[in-house]
């Protein structure tokens, strides 16, 4: 009786079988890698803004503290983007005729918002609260990076859930004294873990990892 299948079909079958295992695995793996990559998380990608605000100049050169502009960071969930009126505190006198600041003046005098483009964007189902992090000794730099070296704001960290959980599961090495929260180049005087353990005890740090801490 002649065989039904030609001989080459044996190999064909083995190849297909292999592909059937490899292709979905590859797709899923690549997918999972892609989602964590800067392509998706937008890490280190500067965002163009309607007003060319230079953090490096304002923080490093002028020496303004983070909280002067981001005023609600210690009191509420959102750190707060400053209103145009705050910019005008200085820029009604400094560079007050500059073309680059025209949108700011226009926003102030017409009492309309400057449409800043979001850089750090968490999904809508994540409820992040700045004030508790500040209160427990998490510095601005930890999540936002060296803002004093950014001419254009970029997201320094991936801000994936993995990033948040890594710290929440072990916050102590990332802690710093509360008066150094906004400091940009602070280093722990000793081993960060040892120092952090002391701070955690002092500040009563209990980083929660239950789901409803962030997902409500």
């Amino acid at each position: 009786m002649t065989p039904l299948f030609p001989r080459w079909s044996n190999n064909a079958f083995r190849v297909v079988l292999g592909l059937l295992v490899l292709v979905p695995t590859a797709l899923v793996t690549l997918g999972m890698l892609w989602v964590r990559s800067p392509f998706r998380t937008e890490q280190n990608q500067s965002v163009v803004q309607p007003v060319q605000f230079d953090h490096r100049h304002h923080v490093e050169d002028v020496g303004i503290d983070c909280r002067y502009c981001h005023q609600t960071v210690e009191k509420g969930a959102s750190a707060g983007i400053p209103p145009a009126s705050l910019c005008m505190n200085c820029h009604s006198q400094v560079w007050n005729k500059s073309d680059k600041l025209e949108p700011v003046r226009a926003a102030y005098f017409s009492d309309t918002p400057i449409p800043w483009n979001r850089v750090h964007r968490l999904p809508d189902f994540v409820y992040f609260n700045h004030s508790i992090h500040i209160a427990k000794g998490v510095g601005c730099e930890v999540c936002h990076g060296r803002v004093d070296e950014m001419p254009e704001m970029a997201q320094a960290e991936p801000l994936t859930m993995e990033f948040c959980l890594d710290c929440h599961r072990d916050p102590n090495p990332k802690l710093r004294p509360k008066d150094q929260i906004t400091s940009m180049a602070w280093q722990a005087p000793e081993d960060p873990r040892l120092y952090g353990d002391k701070l955690a005890a002092e500040y009563n740090v209990h980083a929660r990892t239950s789901c409803t801490t962030c997902h409500r």
Binding site: A84, W116, N117, R118
Partner: peptide, 25 residues
Amino acid sequence: QACFKPPPGEILPYGKQPANLLPGE
């Protein structure tokens, strides 16, 4: 759905913010 980037968002602060206001609180 998880693969695509979220649409770019904007933050719109006040032009002149009323005093003692905590936005979002």
